[in-house]
Design a protein around this nucleic acid. Structure first.
Length: 157
DNA sequence: CCCTGATTCGC
DNA sequence: GCGAATCAGG
């Protein structure tokens, strides 16, 4: 990939579909391919590959001031517990080696168990990278599997 | 307060 | 067509 920035080529779309059918989340797919989550979702929507809601039942899309403020439920408790329970994330962003892919039988405690391809497929395998003790994934995939950094949210008033 | 999915809208 | 922004639900 020299100088050009191939947005969505066949290979990317293939990977997109593959991971999508594999059951991976949009964020996982986005992280794997190297694009933003919205890019993945946008492409999927464009390809009419959306999983659930494909019906345009949406009624309120008026981005005007007529936005009814919803009463925030007590779900806040769960959210607060999540952030309070979290202390530190020693997730070191490491390079993901695709050359160490191994099958399920070759998996070990110190091997990354990141699923590759669709489960059941012939080319289905795992990352197989060196994973820290106690961690199912390697440093690179751990970043994808677990909570990533505090994403900077852009809020425009 | 965070995350994911899907649609809308500007480029 | 692509992607950020936005909306809606969990």
């Amino acid at each position: 990939m020299p100088v050009l920035s191939p947005t969505w080529t066949d290979e990317r779309i293939e990977l997109l579909k593959r991971h999508f059918e594999a059951g991976l989340s949009c964020r996982e797919i986005a992280a794997d391919i190297g694009v933003s989550r919205n890019a993945v979702i946008g492409k999927l929507s464009r390809l009419n590959l959306t999983r659930g809601r494909t019906n345009d039942d949406r009624k309120v899309q008026d981005r005007g001031p007529a936005r009814a403020q919803r009463a925030v439920p007590r779900l806040q408790y769960e959210m607060l517990a999540t952030i309070y329970g979290d202390t530190d994330a020693p997730v070191a962003t490491g390079p993901i080696d695709d050359a160490n892919r191994c099958s399920l039988l070759e998996l070990a405690e110190n091997r990354c168990r990141w699923p590759i391809s669709t489960p059941g497929a012939e080319d289905f395998c795992f990352c197989g990278n060196s994973a820290p003790d106690g961690q199912p994934y390697c440093a690179g995939h751990s970043r994808l599997a677990y909570r990533p950094n505090a994403r900077a949210r852009v809020m425009r008033g």
